[in-house]
């Protein structure tokens, strides 16, 4: 009896400890983010106050209203940036996934010489710091005339994401037993049909997880975008953040408001896809 009781107390304590730990962890993760949201709603005089104003005295959507009120009236071309960001991120993610599918399938299903070396080589292209790449890339782009175009940035992001998508997708195909596709082929499917109807659906969650990573990387990328974009033709949201900085001033409140506009779509997407994400990573990369 006694032992049972101490056990129970121990369990309750553990549970409380767990909840407290969870709460603290989530608080640490969320607070800086919430601070940004809050900053976007408060007047500047309160954000940078000393002594600090902990409880907001007035909240308003002024920063958001200003942001959308048009260039010259305190606004920035946020709709253009948003459109560019969406087009560039989505297109580059889709292409990176397609290339990743092809590459991953090749790694998973075929045996060939130098496989590990090629695989590692793909990975290593990611180690190049953006700064070493930015000017030469700019040089090439300038010669091709694709500076400040969606196309240029899309291609750059595809290259950024391909190593990662190949890796993850490779892992997923390894998970799908070979016999399944073979059986389908015996049943009269072509290899192509077998792929789409049997192997692809099974690897879908892996593709979803590769997709969300690729999307988040493209959505938030700054270094290359700042070099390869110039005007509203192709400037993306992270580059647009700098519209709130001038030579001597910085509009932190406006920047926070834009940040919120940036985060909401990413968060929504993650919330929708995250179920696939976890199960995706699980069956994928490790066994690959």
């Amino acid at each position: 009896m006694d032992e049972n009781q101490t056990n129970r107390i121990k369990q309750i304590l553990l549970k409380i400890g767990h909840l407290v730990g969870l709460f603290i962890a989530m608080a640490i993760i969320c607070l800086p983010g919430l601070w940004i949201v809050l900053s976007s709603l408060r007047p500047t005089v309160e954000i940078m106050a000393k002594p600090p104003v902990w409880i907001p005295e007035s909240l308003s959507f002024d920063a958001y209203i200003a942001m959308f009120s048009g260039v010259g009236q305190g606004g920035i071309p946020v709709l253009d940036y948003f459109r560019n960001s969406i087009i560039i991120s989505v297109t580059s993610t889709v292409i990176a996934l397609a290339i990743g599918l092809a590459g991953g399938y090749a790694f998973a299903r075929y045996r060939f010489r130098g496989k590990t070396a090629i695989f590692l080589g793909f990975m290593l292209t990611r180690t190049v710091p953006g700064i070493a790449l930015s000017l030469p890339l700019f040089f090439v782009y300038a010669k091709l005339g694709i500076i400040d175009t969606h196309f240029g940035l899309i291609i750059a992001y595809v290259a950024l994401n391909v190593p990662f998508t190949v890796w993850l997708i490779d892992g997923f195909f390894r998970q799908v037993p070979r016999d399944l596709a073979e059986a389908a082929q015996i049943d009269g499917c072509t290899r192509w049909q077998a792929f789409w109807q049997v192997e692809f659906p099974l690897a879908r969650s892996g593709i979803a997880s590769a997709g969300i990573f690729a999307f988040l990387i493209s959505w938030n990328e700054f270094a290359l975008a700042s070099q390869l974009t110039r005007s509203t033709n192709s400037k993306t949201l992270p580059v647009g953040l700098l519209d709130y900085t001038a030579e001597f001033t910085i509009d932190w409140r406006g920047m926070c408001a834009l940040a919120v506009v940036m985060i909401i779509p990413a968060l929504t997407l993650t919330f929708i896809v995250q179920k696939h994400l976890v199960s995706g990573l699980t069956s994928g990369a490790v066994k690959g």
Binding site: A98, I99, G100, A102, G103, Y105, A106, R109, Y110, F112, I118, F122, T125, V128, A132, L133, L135, P136, L137, F139, V140, I155, A156, V158, A159, V162, P163, V166
Partner: peptide, 25 residues
């Protein structure tokens, strides 16, 4: 061979966007 074909897009993109600029730099 099919694996060459499948890997080709990845090769092309990485070569164009990473390797060529890297050689320049």
């Amino acid at each position: 061979a099919p694996h060459v074909l499948l890997l080709l897009p990845a090769f092309v993109v990485l070569a164009a966007v990473v390797v060529v600029p890297l050689l320049l730099s």
